[in-house]
Amino acid sequence: MTGVVRGSRLGEGLRAYRLIAGMWIRSAMTYRASFVVTVCGNLAVTGLDFVGILLMFSQVDALGGWRLPEIAFLYGLSVTAFGIADLVLGSMDVLGSRIRDGSFDTLLVRPAPVLAQIGADHFAVRRLGRITQGTVVLIWALASVDVDWSAAKVLLVPLMVLSGAVIFCAVFVAGAAFQIFAQDAAEVQNAFTYGGTTLLQYPPTVFGKDFVRGVTFMFPIAFVNWVPACYVLGRPYPLDLPEWAAFAPPLVAAVCCGLAGLAWRAGLGSYRSTGS
């Protein structure tokens, strides 16, 4: 019985998400010129991001022992995964302002899960720009890296992107839950999401051991690309992890979702009992 209810709740959530995201797309389309400009601008800005890395490699041959195609591989994985999460749940940082101006209440009187409603809030197609750019870099990297491709390695690449996207989604949800407690915390959330994806663009070897330990076990974004990418590239793992750790991302993603779900529930529960 509960299984059925939960399943239908997920269905309800996805349906509500689709409806609301559609409204935001139509809203954006009412300003066509502005829409075109922001899409182009977004492509250009995210494109410049990688140009920075290219410039760096015009001066050095390797970064932390990693060569350009390998860095591009890390970059492509991280940016694509983050881009998907950003497209799906990227506007959850507006939650704080929705709570402050009281419009969060209007979502609570709708017959749809609040998480779906707030997730679809300010849905923006322009965010496809990041995914496009990440995918282009990733494809170039896959063509350039010197890897002995096995079935497992081939399978691991899409698995990494998807799990990574889910892990980032979980971070967005947890961040949103945190914003319910601390309403002005959009920047804290951004530090973890945008900050996280930026740090994953560099190889783990450039960071200190304790830091790497932190992003592996505490805030496990190392599983978005570092650990599985090391397996694909035939490099030693950043920490003394067993070989199967490369295939852990789906598991890590599932655990993250569970924890984020609990955090969200706690956050919403506290809102509804304090009415801040």
Binding site: D105, L108, V109, G269, R272, S273, G275
Partner: peptide
């Protein structure tokens, strides 16, 4: 807000 389910009564 309590009548609409936005807030939970104490």
């Amino acid at each position: 807000k309590m009548l609409t389910g936005i807030l939970t009564p104490s």
